[in-house]
Every structure is written in C-alpha cells, then in structure tokens.
Amino acid sequence: MKIDGKTHAFGDKIDTDLLSPGAYMKGPINEMAKHCLEAVDPDFTNRAEPGDIVTAGFEFGTGSSREQAASCLILNGIGCVLARSFARIFYRNALNLGLPVMVCPTAHEIAPGTRLTVDPLAGTATEEGGRVHYCEPIPERLMDMVAAGGLIPYLEKTRIT
C-alpha cells in the first residue's frame, strides 16, 4: 500500500479540538468533518483531495481520546499523516481506523503542496523532486490492519467464525 498525494502543512500541537471541534460532537460525523482544522486553515476542507497527505510538527493529535479527530481527516480524504511526533492516543486511534500515520523527523521541511509518495512499510516519503524523507515504518502486521480499513474491518475479514 502506497499513498500518493499533495501535502497540507501544519505546525506543532495540532490538537483534537482543531481536528474535531467539540461543538459538533453530538451531531453527525460528516458535519463535524466540514469543520476539521478550520480554526487554523479555513480553506483546508475545500482544498483537500482524496489521497492527500497532512504534514505537521510535534504532538499531532494532542488532547482528547476522541476518535473523531482521525475520522475527520479520513472523511476529508486524507490518506496519511506525517508528523515529527504524535500524541499516543491519536496514534493508536488513527491506525485502528485505517489511517496510516508515521513519525517523520523532517516532516516540517516538506513544503505545502508538494507531491509525495509514501510507503508506510518501507518508512519513506519521497518528494516528486526526488528527496526522500525517512520515517518510522509501520510494522507489517499493523499495516495489514490499516490496509483492511482498520481494526473492525480487519477483525471481520480475519475472524474465524
């Protein structure tokens, strides 16, 4: 599984209220997804296209345990997040929901709008111009779950009934 897309760049501490604003928690998730990241980038949901990649600094996904933070990115078509570090609950939630996320120490050096090819098993993110960014790869067993679309579809597929 590889992801090809253009990047949307964000800074440090992109928290769960920026990703999935609390005011929309009780409504349908599709409605909340329209407000994903609007407080820091009002045009994000308009620009995002299927397969696009979010790059960010430290502590991506810090804050709440709400899975909607990852769901809102997925619903906006985001295919992968590369950040210099992740909050641990967000990291687990994203993989459980089928969103590949990788720690990439040079994520902040990738210019917004760069076309990128990400290989989660190899742990690489290659710019169209050729520069390779090295990330912490996602282990094969976990990638099986991610590629299936997350834990629930994976269990449905693999469980012996």
């Binding site: 709440s64 345990s65 709400r66 899975e67 609950i89 687990r92 939630n93 459980n96 834990l151």
Partner: peptide, 24 residues
Amino acid sequence: GDSHSCTGGAWGAVMVGIGATDML
C-alpha cells in the same frame, strides 16, 4: 475511554486513556 483517565493513577493504579475502537 477518555484522555484524562490517567487521573486514576492517584490511587497507585495504572490507568490509561484509549479511543473507542481500542475500547471495543
């Protein structure tokens, strides 16, 4: 199933916060 579940550590327990799918 809440990020502030770490509060339980005050009683000398290990209590960690997780998301809904992990909780499932």
